[in-house]
Amino acid sequence: MNELQELYREVILDHNRQPRNFGEIDDADRVIDGVNPLCGDRMTLYLKLDGKTVEDVRFRGSGCAISVASSSLMTERIKGASIDETMGLFEMVHEMLTNDADEPPDELEKLVALAGVREYPSRVKCASLAWHALRAALTGADHEVSTE
């Protein structure tokens, strides 16, 4: 169970049970759908942007624990952060999920809980779905993003 406990850390299970920032933003500046065809995970990300910062962020959708927890942790971490910082976090998370050589940077804070995913290549897409949706939203894409 060791690797499994590493994957399903308490913080992941907690965010899966009680996702933070779950819901919609009526006057969102950006709304984007993300889909992971492998497991049928779907999520919609709502962003309220205030010039250079993420003023508010919410999400809706259904998915596995990794995908829901990743979305929840992401919204918690980027709410109030600058867009530049948020894009930097995307890079750091991407690096953490795909490269197990380095220790994840401290700036990731609670997001390091996702590090266990890298031992499960088929699950990396679950953890990265929300982040790909986020990047697409911030770079102005207006179509559905897919992890495929």
């Binding site: 994957l7 497991c39 596995c64 624990a65």
Partner: peptide
């Protein structure tokens, strides 16, 4: 309360 994907991994 447990997504099939999590069941599969476990």
């Amino acid at each position: 309360g447990i997504h099939a994907h999590d069941v599969g991994t476990i």
